[in-house]
């Protein structure tokens, strides 16, 4: 009896607490990785500051975008993080509103490439990554993106599939090495198609690639810097290429959904996430490379990240608009020239 009344009391208490806290709720839509760390480093500290509840929805870009689009007349999500090109796609569909960057006290600390990657302040970059070639330094030396198709690497190289985030930027850099920077990527795709038998596989997940490198199935592959940790420590002589054409990469942005009615709280949250303190913590936990230029980390941490003004200056990124506009065409060419 006592137990039952205690439980009932606890239930009533829990209901009142959640009713109070639910006065202010911020619903965010994020990638599903590292959520435990995000909760500890970002969400919980912010909840303490704002006295609000954060509701987190996770999933891959496509799922989350589909959900935002389905609820566009009565938005559930207040702010979301997406890849830059997916964000631009959402903006073009009218699902987003411009971000009032004057309300972001940390905005001026961002690297220039992160300030307005989509145009019209539709998104603010909060992290980016370099993409270059991870390779076996005892087998080959890589100084150019063109080395990917060299005779030394024939039968020993994997490329990202065109459908991955790494695929098009890597092809773009291959084209650049061949003297062709046309966004149609026709020339590099043709070049890959001619050498298709020399390429072990077109990978979809970097975790799968790490195993292929470990098993000595491959000696080189273009990867995102965020995956570098699982290659560097595999017990084999590994190096990160710094090709003469530069490195490429990608960026993730924060966006504000249209007409969500919760703009003030969402802006406060974005500002918190972009602050030097939070960005430093996320960098030290090796979760996201900082877009805030005031973040300082040790050399050891920096070696795992895309870090510092010098690195940022060498990044040659495909613009979100290019990716969005050309994607279907790339896939079509890829299917006829490479997969056949």
């Amino acid at each position: 009896m006592l137990k039952r009344s205690l439980m009932a009391g606890a239930a009533v208490l829990a209901m009142t607490v959640s009713a109070q806290a639910a006065d202010k709720t911020l619903t965010i839509s994020v990638y599903s990785f590292s959520q435990d760390a995000f909760k500890e480093l970002v969400y919980t500290p912010f909840e303490a500051i704002c006295g609000c509840d954060i509701v987190v929805e996770t999933g891959n870009s496509i799922e989350r975008m589909a959900k935002i689009e389905a609820n566009k007349d009565a938005p559930v999500i207040d702010m979301a993080v997406l890849s830059a090109h997916d964000a631009l796609g959402a903006a073009r569909k009218g699902l987003l509103q411009p971000i009032d960057t004057t309300a972001l006290t940390n905005y001026d600390k961002l690297y220039d490439i992160a300030k307005d990657p989509l145009g019209d302040n539709m998104g603010v970059g909060y992290t980016f990554y370099a993409t270059s070639i991870a390779y076996r330094s005892d087998k080959v030396t890589i100084t150019s993106w063109a080395d990917l198709l060299s005779p030394e690497l024939a039968g020993n190289v994997a490329l990202p599939d065109v459908t991955t985030n790494q695929g098009p930027p890597a092809l773009y850099m291959l084209g650049k090495a061949m003297g062709d920077t046309d966004p149609s990527l026709t020339k590099p795709i043709e070049a890959v198609g001619e050498k298709v038998d020399d390429i072990v596989t077109f990978y979809v997940r970097s975790s799968q690639l790490a195993q292929l490198m470990q098993q000595e199935e491959i000696w080189a592959a273009p990867i995102g810097r965020f995956a570098w940790g699982s290659f560097r420590d595999n017990g084999l002589p590994m190096a990160w290429a710094e090709p003469v054409e530069g490195q490429t990469g990608g960026m993730n942005v924060m966006v504000m959904t249209a007409n969500n009615g919760n703009e003030e709280l969402a802006l406060q949250f974005m500002d918190f996430w972009l602050s030097t303190e939070v960005q430093t913590k996320l960098a030290e936990a090796l979760i996201d490379s900082p877009a805030n230029s005031e973040v300082e980390v040790s050399d050891e941490i920096a070696a795992n990240l895309t870090y510092g003004a010098d690195t940022v200056a060498t990044l040659d990124l495909l613009s979100p608009a290019t990716i969005l506009d050309m994607r279907e065409g790339w896939l079509e060419q890829w299917n006829s020239k490479v997969v056949q």
Partner: peptide
Amino acid sequence: AILGGSKVL
């Protein structure tokens, strides 16, 4: 997916 990859769809 694992043994064939995108070359053997």
